[in-house]
């Protein structure tokens, strides 16, 4: 970054960013011309690199960097996944100020973060005239709302996805990347979630295999790497972008509603929509900056996925409705074989 603040100033702050990063052993590079760096990457594309502080000559470092494997062909999901399955029960952190504002979200969030505060959600219903276009608002909260059991594949899962699933009345079990479809089905989930994660989706054949087996047997929702894996499982192909999509301001158009969502993104690979069998797959979302694929759904079977991060944290909440759609999908599939 250009400048790294040495001071934390927020009523919730407990330590400085520097302390936090030190605790987690994460290096920080700052006081450089970040804009020059971005322009460089924009021109030459994503690069391999080495961070070094000990004065090793540049030539040697360049050699080291060159020796690193390229991201293409690299399977990383299984490396960062959990070893053991576990249950996740924690919902979103709620700020004091969040209460009112969260209730005001109409296009995105459809239920209050906290189910124990039904009054907030009632407020949304009352003001639902403007949010009706999303087709989501107005659902009344329900203290004893139906709960859903969800198995989440961990390909490098972001915690906020788990939190948001919990917010949406899901009982979540996280399983390792290489868990077989059979083992997942044995848990009798209402739905399966396919997470984000690092690396090239193509070599993650174990995951592609599992998705193929699960397809049609249980509702599935994929995000990011999970989306790419779905694409591959459905017979499509993926390819690497020059410098990927990173940041929290990518406009994505929902082709079903024609509405634009501002989304958080962090990916280098994308699904080639041309490669998907159009008889089975419907493209649902497209990136307005470069027109790459951002989402799809199966025309007949209960599966949909998006390339971006609807759980965004950091990032805008415009796409939170997708979690509700996952619930809807699980709801409609109930009782089906």
């Amino acid at each position: 970054m250009r400048e790294f603040s040495q001071l934390a100033s927020n009523y919730r702050s407990t330590e400085t960013a520097q302390n936090y990063l030190e605790r987690h052993g994460i290096p920080v590079i700052w006081d450089l011309d970040t804009r020059a760096l971005v322009r460089h990457l924009r021109t030459v594309g994503a690069l391999r690199g080495v961070v070094c502080t000990d004065g090793t000559p540049a030539a040697k470092l360049i050699k080291e960097a060159r020796a690193l494997p390229t991201m293409a062909g690299l399977e990383l999901a299984s490396r960062v996944s959990c070893d053991q399955s576990y249950e996740w029960a924690r919902g979103s952190v709620e700020l004091a100020a969040a209460a009112g504002a969260a209730a005001g979200t109409s296009g995105g969030l459809t239920r209050a973060y906290r189910a124990d505060q039904p009054s907030l959600f009632t407020a949304v219903s009352a003001g639902a005239t403007h949010s009706a276009s999303s087709g989501q608002a107005g659902r009344s909260p329900d203290a004893d709302a139906r709960r859903f059991s969800v198995v989440a594949y961990d390909f490098g899962i972001k915690q906020n996805i788990l939190r948001v699933l919990v917010d949406h009345h899901c009982d979540v079990r996280v399983v390792p990347a290489k868990t077989s479809a059979e083992d997942v089905l044995a848990l009798k989930p209402d739905g399966v979630f396919l997470s984000n994660g690092p690396g090239d989706p193509e070599p993650a054949t174990f995951a592609i295999e599992s998705i193929r087996k699960l397809l049609g047997r249980v509702p599935m929702f994929g995000i990011c790497l999970g989306h790419q894996l779905c694409g591959l499982a459905l017979g499509g192909r993926t390819y690497k972008l020059k410098f990927g999509h990173h940041g929290s301001n990518h406009p994505v158009k929902n082709l079903l509603t024609e509405k634009v969502e501002i989304t958080a993104q962090n990916h280098g690979f994308v699904v080639d929509p041309e490669s998907l069998p159009s008889s089975d797959v419907e493209i649902t979302h497209v990136n307005l900056n470069d027109h790459t694929n951002e989402g799809m759904r199966h025309r007949t079977l209960p599966l949909f996925s998006v390339q971006y991060h609807p759980e965004a944290s950091p990032g805008p909440h415009d796409s939170r409705y997708l979690f509700q759609e996952f619930l809807d999908l699980m709801m409609t599939q109930e009782g089906r074989p």
């Binding site: 927020n10 100020a97 969040a98 969260a102 005001g104 979200t105 403007h130 965004a312 909440h317």
Partner: peptide
């Protein structure tokens, strides 16, 4: 970011309402 996104949601809600 958390505070900012809450504010952003609120702004969207206000302009709609």
């Amino acid at each position: 970011d958390k505070e900012y996104q809450i504010m952003r949601d609120a702004a969207a809600a206000v302009i709609r309402e």
